[in-house]
Amino acid sequence: MARAAAEVPDSILSEDLLRRYVDLLVRLVEAAGAIVIFLGAVLAAVKFVRAAFRGRRSEEFVRVRLGLGRYLTLGLEFQLASDVLSTAIAPTFGEIGKLAAIAAIRTLLNYFLGKEIDHERAEVEEEERDPDRTSRSSATDT
């Protein structure tokens, strides 16, 4: 097996070539993640302004926030994919350490964002099922 790998000519799959290809892929996937996050945030800002001028209902704002959270999660998935790709070409221990820290932050964020989205979606669905619940609870609070 090792001999077979050694027999592959350098011109077809040299380490340097592989590194360049993976590097390009990492940049492309990372850029896709960044673009998703940026566009999602800009779209959410536009929707926030529209919701503010259309009315003052809380569900509208919560729904827009949920949408933004989904974009962030999608962007994070792309960035995590690029982190996984980076592990193929991380040569030094320092770079691997940094990569591990970034991946840990992104994974944790992804987890918390997912939980938050689930929680808020459940709240919105509950309010839609029983629209008087919130006004009743605010009346009993005061």
Binding site: A34, I37, F38, A44, L68, L72, Q79, K98, R106
Partner: peptide, 20 residues
């Protein structure tokens, strides 16, 4: 939420320990 999005964009650019 927006600050988080901004932080994620910065993280894509310069993954120094400070940015992390």
């Amino acid at each position: 939420e927006f600050l988080l999005a901004a932080g994620l964009l910065r993280l894509s650019d310069d993954p120094t320990y400070r940015a992390l």
